[in-house]
Amino acid sequence: MDISGNTIFIPGATSGIGLALALALKDRGNTVIIGGRRTDLLDSLAAQHPGLDTVTVDTADAASIQQAAAQVLARHPDLNVLIAMAGIMRVEDWHAPESFLASAESVVTTNVLGPIRLIAAFIEHLQSRPAATIMTVSSGLAFTPLKATPSYNASKAAIHLLSESIRLQLADTGVKIVELVPPAVRTGLLPGQEESEFAMPLDEFVAEVVGLIESQPDATEIQVERVKFLRYAEARGDYDQVVATLNTADPHGK
């Protein structure tokens, strides 16, 4: 993926990593469209950041994704990058179904079905564009689990293998599949995470991501240094120790 000259749609970009990445990519000479559920918030962000386009979308709703895709492509027929950013994380207790079932279903709908539906809505268009890219967003927890968030871990593992699989299928097209693999980052993904010493500062994370995109335009995974502790635990042979460390060090792992 080139660092500039793209037209990029990022649903789930009204806060956290999505918004910070959208603004950083806009500053690097890209046309950026962000999506979110709250029209008032989108309007406020557009007013604060001239040139940033917005579209209302609920990534847990299949019809909303189709409507948003039609709007984006009508206004930006040169769109060549989709970043499937939207995701939710929930702490769950799997001792009884009433404690986790609704949460698990919501996480899977947003984190797995959401990206699948987004890709389905844009894939035919992207195959017609030169230098097209789909960026998926997994997590270090796709490779080493946080015990408090089983469905989130599983959803991100699904995104990792989905990315690997569709990269193989789309090898006969011009569409690149790039997987962004974040560590814990100081966002509102979980209560208290914005102040967590365990999590990486948001500005540092986004700066490193943008630097990696620029220096490694052909990368299939974007991995900041902080995530490699989780990403390669099994390959290094210290998986059990990393699992233990993760679930002791992170307050949400209790």
Rank of each mutant, 00 (worst) to 15 (best):
N153C: 15
N153D: 07
N153Y: 03
A154Y: 06
A154W: 08
S155Q: 05
S155D: 02
K156F: 09
K156C: 04
A157D: 06
A157G: 10
A157K: 08
A158H: 13
I159A: 06
H160I: 07
L161F: 11
L161M: 11
L162M: 12
L162H: 01
E164L: 13
S165T: 15
S165M: 11
I166M: 15
I166G: 07
I166W: 13
R167K: 14
R167V: 14
Q169P: 00
Q169I: 00
Q169V: 09
L170W: 10
L170I: 04
L170R: 01
A171D: 12
A171M: 07
T173R: 05
T173L: 02
G174R: 12
V175S: 08
I177P: 02
I177S: 03
E179D: 15
L180V: 09
V181S: 11
V181I: 15
V181W: 11
P182I: 11
P182A: 10
A184M: 12
V185M: 12
R186D: 07
T187E: 04
T187F: 03
T187Q: 06
L190N: 02
L190Q: 02
L190A: 06
L190K: 02
G192F: 09
G192T: 01
G192P: 02
G192V: 01
Q193T: 03
E194R: 14
E195H: 13
E195M: 09
E195A: 14
S196L: 06
E197Q: 15
E197K: 15
A199P: 07
M200C: 11
P201Q: 03
P201N: 01
P201K: 04
L202K: 09
D203E: 15
E204W: 04
F205K: 12
F205V: 09
V206Y: 05
V206W: 07
V206T: 01
A207I: 02
A207K: 12
A207E: 09
V209G: 01
V209F: 05
V210N: 10
G211D: 04
G211C: 02
G211N: 01
L212V: 11
L212Q: 10
I213H: 03
E214M: 00
E214D: 10
S215P: 00
S215C: 03
S215I: 02
P217T: 00
P217N: 02
P217R: 06
